[in-house]
Simulated assay, not measured.
Amino acid sequence: MDTRTGLPVVGMVGGGQLARMTHQAAISLGQSLRVLSVSPDDSAALVAADVRLGTHTDLAALREFAKGCEAVTFDHEHVPNEHIAALEAEGVKVFPGSAALVFAQDKGRMRERLAAMGAPVPRWQRVGTAAEIEAFAEAGGGGWPVVAKAVRGGYDGKGVWMLAGPDEAAELVATGTPLLVEERVPLRRELAALVARSPFGQVAAYPVVETVQRDGICVEVLAPAPGLSESRALEAQQLAIDLANALGVVGLLAVELFETDGGIVVNELAMRPHNSGHWTIEGARTSQFEQHLRAVLDYPMGATTLTAPAVVMANVLGGAPGGISIDERLHHLFATDPGARVHLYGKQVRPGRKIGHVTVLGDDMTSVRARAVRAAKWLQEGV
């Protein structure tokens, strides 16, 4: 509890853009998010008032960080699960808890649990040799390519490989990375269902969105997912709610989905604010960041309805060096599209790195999407 305000303190492990935007949401609740950051130059560390320097792999640093926090949460899944369990055993309220978060940390455990629940998942198998990968490819009737995933630690396209044949499989196995393989799902598009759950058990679901991926990175999110039938949207939302309840998630749960001719299939889980929910800052009555804070503090959930018929978020990626400054690009963008909402993360620019996002709202999805893509491209390239 903050003795100056009488309001609870939430600590977020990780100083990236998710913590930065969660801090912004905390301000309207009268709080200042406490952040555990590796560097004072991390996105959240640049803006938050209460920054502690340390690493998420250091249990002593986590213990010290948690002192005085009403709840501790995360902006990434890379905190060792045994450290989370140790904090819980010492009475720290950690959300999501170790028993839930393991299913976002370990893809093998996630696939096993979801399959046992009867949730729709691709055909998959843990593998340790190239021969096992080859047998998997042949057994399903689909043949090559197959998708290989690192069991732990992958994100934004890292830790995922599309294997075209036995030679590529042997090369990957030789790296020693613990792996599982999945069939390549014949998808129509990718969707995401975002829900929040409190310790009390209240659940709030956001409209299902379409996510557009390029080189393993989400580049656009369209809310609501265009052309998605009401029955399919309700199915996706109910699946996300069922998973949140069954896994005991507290906070945000993002369920990444494949839409296929036969239905929806679960791709990945994330138990934190998620790129597929950035549009909610302007596009929903309650942003995913405020909702996450409400959930971990056991506040009643906020409304999740859209604020406009069409909302599009486009990620701003780092471009090639040179050109006009980002400040000049903002001047030009706001002059040409004053309705575009820009969020920059305070990151050093590297080609392909997420450095911000743009959100555009309107009545027509086609025109709104065109504006968002144009704005993000201008901020990336300056042309």
Rank of each mutant, 00 (worst) to 15 (best):
T260P: 04
G262V: 09
G262D: 15
G262W: 12
G263W: 06
G263H: 10
G263T: 12
G263N: 13
G263A: 15
V265Y: 08
V265M: 05
V265A: 07
V265H: 09
V266Q: 09
V266C: 13
N267D: 13
N267K: 10
N267A: 09
N267H: 13
E268Q: 06
L269K: 07
A270D: 07
A270S: 11
M271A: 12
M271N: 06
R272H: 12
R272S: 12
P273C: 07
P273F: 10
P273K: 04
H274Y: 10
N275Y: 14
N275C: 02
N275I: 09
N275P: 04
S276H: 07
G277W: 00
G277S: 07
H278S: 01
H278A: 02
W279T: 01
W279Y: 14
I281Y: 02
I281A: 06
I281D: 02
E282C: 02
G283E: 04
G283V: 03
G283Y: 05
A284T: 03
A284Q: 03
A284F: 03
R285N: 11
T286S: 07
T286C: 05
S287P: 00
F289P: 00
E290W: 01
Q291E: 05
L293Q: 08
L293S: 10
A295E: 08
A295Q: 09
A295N: 13
V296C: 10
L297C: 08
L297Q: 09
D298R: 14
D298K: 15
Y299R: 14
P300S: 11
P300Q: 09
P300M: 07
P300A: 07
P300R: 10
P300G: 08
M301D: 13
M301V: 10
G302M: 02
A303N: 15
T304I: 03
T305H: 15
T307H: 15
A308E: 05
A308H: 11
A310N: 12
A310F: 06
V311E: 04
V312Q: 04
M313Q: 11
M313C: 11
M313I: 03
